[in-house]
Amino acid sequence: MAKPNNKKKQPAPVTVTPSGTAAAAAHDAHGHGGHDDGQHVGHIVPFWILGATFGGLVILTLLTVALSGVPLGRLNLWVTLLIAGMKASLVVFFFMHLKWDRPLNGVIFLASLLFVMLFIGLAMTDTGNYQPDIQAWSSSQP
């Protein structure tokens, strides 16, 4: 749901319809943003948010590159994934507007992630379960 709380709802080229106000009042009930007359769609992301997102992504990229040189053992993988996850969140929420989108889009996105994690998780569980067999076989090899 569009949140009407962002300061300038950019009355962007509010050229539109003569019937603007009336329609807006009517459609407000749907909660599609304050000035909605059924023609103004989407949400304009303030420029500073775009810039800040870009900056954040660059910083996180440099961070992950720097951390790759630090030996943390197995932790390296998880730190790397954590940073990648943060970057992904920035992209999804701000660049991809999910923050202001209908929740259903977020549900679709999360569902896909969930299924990928299920897929990989089950595969890894399987891999893990075979480790004893693998060890046994490996040690039986000359």
């Binding site: 997102t53 660059v58 990229t61 660049f95």
Partner: peptide, 19 residues
Amino acid sequence: IVLIFSSFTMAWSIRAIQQ
């Protein structure tokens, strides 16, 4: 970095056309 920047310009271009 190049891809991130291109994402930035892409998002910005949408803002531009919205305006």
